[in-house]
Nucleic acid binder design. Structure first.
Lengths: 206, 206
DNA sequence: CATTATTGTGAACAATAGCTCAGGTTTTGG
DNA sequence: CCAAAACCTGAGCTATTGTTCACAATAATG
């Protein structure tokens, strides 16, 4: 069992465009290979083959296999946007609209390649660096959701923090599950029901 | 990447008590090793070592590594009970009590060794046989929940099947997440909030 | 007690995967 | 144009792991 704290920095940083291109080819190939074979069976040689570069080149820009998936996951996290929710910070609407924005963002962020996302979430070897990044993103997002709830007049829950945590997990995991599975429920139906559930929960009172 | 359809039957079936005991030692050891190291790093030699039997003996009762985890998962599934929900079939109560029973059962079934459960759910190589078993259990349980909802007068949702699916996933995944993670939320709080959310959703009609 | 069936052993094999390195090719800079 | 830096190559090394098999030990049988 390899330690999760091996270095993730490349041994050589690209200086020519050619090199940067190679790096991109490797990442693109890795995304495909991991999505198709999983992490364990997605071998570095297969990735190199798919990227049409030699295995040696791969190890010029990535110190080890873990670093490749870590890089992909980092990118996903940094690229992940919460545009609809962000808008609400400026002009809030009904509670249902707010919840819908959260759900839509979650769905959007699972849009391209849910397979790869599944691998990244479930099989990625977690380095300390990676865990910190994930944690940071989680906290930032948690704070955002918390604020959204705190400011909305229709929210009535016992404890804001608990509620924020619960609905984040619920939205995230349900979306993840739906997108990864063979579509048992149409997305629109799923969205509507999930929105209903969360909204009614937050509205509380009764 | 090994095919997921290798045979899962042992090459030798125990006939003496001594053999049956060895089988149990292997399974117990495997549970510990998998829980501690994960599936990939939980090597067969390590399992044999922990079980204090030779690696050869291990392969007398399990044709390969996959079969060991498969066996553990099968056992978990077959042992999994839904006692509280079952009771409701006989004497139904309030909607909240019904939902609470479902949640409690889910929590109970994650009770011992959530680590191992995580490994089994997320890393187990799925053979066709295993998938079928899981599918069967899922359907049986789905039908039970569906019936419970259909019979309860306070349930008001657009579509019973969709609702059953949604709340099953929600309860299951939220519980799974909570039990695996370092406890951020106390179980009691979590239970109450989850029950509230699901109940309000099912009660519908705002 | 003798024979057979069952169970246990562990060194060694084969397969595979991550990764290195010595040397070749291309680009850059002066 | 040419030397140095950057980049690329891929055969093969190292390490690990799942698995086998010839043999030994133990228990059942009659």
């Amino acid at each position: 069992m390899p330690s999760a704290d091996r270095r993730l920095q490349p041994r050589r940083t690209p200086r020519q465009v050619r090199a940067e291109l190679t790096r991109e080819r490797i990442l693109a190939a890795a995304a495909h290979v991991f999505a198709e074979h999983g992490y364990a069976a997605g071998t570095t040689n297969r990735i190199a083959e798919r990227a049409r570069i030699s295995i040696g080149s791969l190890y010029q820009y990535f110190p080890n296999k873990d670093a490749i998936l870590a890089q992909l996951l980092m990118r996903h996290l940094d690229r992940g946007t919460w545009t609809q929710a962000d808008q609400l910070d400026l002009s809030p609407g009904t509670l249902e609209a707010t919840v819908r924005a959260l759900v839509r963002d979650a769905i959007d962020n699972h849009g391209d390649d849910p397979q790869l996302l599944r691998i990244m979430i479930e099989e990625a070897p977690m380095s300390r660096e990676l865990l910190e990044t994930i944690d940071r993103h989680g906290r930032e997002r948690g704070a955002q959701v918390r604020d959204l709830l705190a400011r909305h007049p229709d929210v009535h829950v016992r404890d804001i923090d608990t509620a924020a945590e619960l609905i984040m997990v619920t939205v995230e995991l349900n979306t993840h599950k739906l997108m990864a599975d063979p579509r048992t429920i149409p997305v629109e139906t799923f969205e509507q029901e999930l929105v209903d559930m969360v909204t009614r929960y937050l509205r509380g009172d009764r």
